[in-house]
């Protein structure tokens, strides 16, 4: 993809995210944050490709570390958000 397209995607996604997230009430700001946290583990996608295509042993190891960390981020974030959200009960 061309740099121009990528930057366009960046801008559109930021605006769309801004619009949707602004509607989340402060009641749910902690779960929102941990949910967003989980999403920031999206970098696992990059780490998978980078690791698979790495040749040097050191690089493979760094990539492997990146996969592990990003997956902790992803899995931990979603589960902890789920735990929190299930606690919110109405009368």
């Amino acid at each position: 993809m061309s740099p121009f397209t990528l930057i366009l995607i960046f801008i559109i996604a930021t605006l769309a995210g801004y619009k949707v997230i602004n509607e989340v009430p402060s009641l749910l700001h902690t779960p929102l944050m941990s949910g967003m946290n989980a999403l920031s583990g999206v970098t696992v996608l990059g780490s998978l490709v980078a690791t698979a295509s790495a040749v040097a042993v050191g690089n493979v190891f760094l990539g492997f570390l990146a996969i592990t960390l990003a997956t902790i981020n992803l899995v931990g974030g979603f589960i902890v958000t789920d735990r929190m959200l299930r606690m919110f009960k109405s009368k």
Partner: peptide, 25 residues
């Protein structure tokens, strides 16, 4: 950071999701 990583790798999904998280924060 994730989004910029996506720019470097040319991965639109990484760019978009990272940007959403950035906006939220």
């Amino acid at each position: 950071a994730g989004s910029i990583c996506g720019l470097a790798l040319g991965d639109p999904l990484l760019v978009a999701v990272g940007a959403i998280v950035g906006a939220s924060g």
